[in-house]
Simulated assay, not measured.
Amino acid sequence: MTRIVAGVLGGRTIAVPGKGTRPTSDRVREAIFSRLEHLDVLDGARVLDLYAGSGALGLEAASRGAVSVTLVDSARAATDVARRNVAALGLTGVRVTTETAERYAASLAGAGARPAVPGTTTAALDLVFLDPPYDLDGAALAAVLTHLAAPGVLADGAVVVVERSTRTPEPAWPAGLVPFARKDYGETAVYYAEPAGPEASDSVGA
C-alpha cells in the first residue's frame, strides 16, 4: 500500500500492483509535488500519467487540484488496480487506459493539430508524468518524448516530469522540450522539462 501525500485526499491509502511496477516513494512524490506547487501548474491542470502503475502520481495531482487526469499503463494488472483506486477515492475526473505509452503519446501527437474538445484528451496538457521501468531503452523513452513535443500536445507553460535511475543516461530531449532542472533522491533521478519557445522558463534552476 502507498498513500496520497497531501491535498483533499491527503492520507488516503491506495493499492499497488503485486509485481511489475516500481511505485514512486512517498518521499520522492512529496518532493516532486512541492516543486510543482511552486511552479503553480497543479490547480486546474490537465494531467497525463504515463507508465502509471497504480496511478499514484496522477492521483496525487487530482488530490491537489488537477481537473482531469489520464492514467496510462500497458499492463492490464496495473490498470485494474488503478481503476479500483479511482473508484475507492470517488474521483470523477480521472480515467484509466490500458495502452503502451508510445502508442498513447502518438495518438495525442496525431490529434494535436485538431481543435480541443472539452472532456477529451485532445485538450493540451499542463502536466505529464513519465515513470518508466528503469530498464526501458533510452530510444523508446525518446520516442515518447518526441510525440509529447508535437504541436498542440502540451499547453504553454506545461511541465514534463521524468523519473529515471541515477545510473541511467539523461533522457534524449527532442527539439520541442527544454529540460530546466534535475534532482536526485537516492537511486532516483527526477528531470523537469517544458515546451521550447517564449513560455519556457530560464530562471527556475535546479
Results as ranks from 00 to 15, higher is better:
195 P>T: 07
28 V>K: 06
86 V>N: 11
55 G>N: 09
87 A>W: 00
17 P>A: 09
157 G>D: 09
92 T>P: 00
48 L>S: 10
174 P>M: 01
33 F>I: 02
153 V>K: 07
147 H>I: 05
203 S>W: 13
158 A>D: 07
102 E>F: 00
24 T>H: 03
118 P>N: 01
193 A>F: 11
17 P>G: 12
80 D>C: 04
147 H>G: 00
156 D>N: 09
159 V>Q: 02
99 E>G: 03
17 P>E: 14
62 A>Q: 03
37 E>W: 00
66 A>H: 11
145 L>T: 04
186 G>T: 02
22 R>K: 12
104 Y>F: 15
23 P>G: 15
66 A>C: 13
131 D>V: 08
136 L>A: 05
53 G>N: 08
198 P>L: 14
88 A>I: 06
134 Y>A: 01
126 D>E: 11
180 F>Y: 13
23 P>C: 15
173 W>A: 13
166 T>F: 07
124 A>M: 10
34 S>G: 07
128 V>N: 00
128 V>L: 03
42 L>V: 00
191 Y>W: 15
4 I>F: 08
105 A>D: 02
132 P>N: 12
78 A>P: 07
163 E>F: 12
21 T>V: 15
17 P>F: 14
19 K>S: 15
127 L>V: 04
84 R>W: 01
119 G>C: 07
70 T>R: 15
68 S>K: 09
56 A>Q: 10
81 V>G: 11
153 V>W: 04
127 L>F: 02
44 G>M: 08
3 R>F: 03
108 L>N: 10
123 A>F: 00
176 G>F: 14
66 A>L: 12
70 T>V: 15
89 L>Q: 07
74 S>V: 05
19 K>M: 05
120 T>C: 14
39 L>E: 01
152 G>D: 05
160 V>T: 02
23 P>I: 14
113 A>S: 12
21 T>E: 08
63 S>L: 12
81 V>C: 10
198 P>A: 15
143 A>P: 02
20 G>W: 02
59 L>N: 12
160 V>L: 09
22 R>A: 08
40 D>T: 13
32 I>L: 15
5 V>D: 09
1 M>T: 07
86 V>F: 09
74 S>A: 12
196 A>H: 10
125 L>F: 00
33 F>D: 00
104 Y>L: 06
115 P>D: 05
190 V>Y: 05
105 A>P: 03
113 A>W: 07
149 A>W: 06
174 P>V: 10
151 P>S: 11
70 T>D: 13
174 P>T: 11
197 G>M: 09
29 R>W: 08
98 T>E: 15
132 P>T: 10
96 V>I: 04
206 A>T: 10
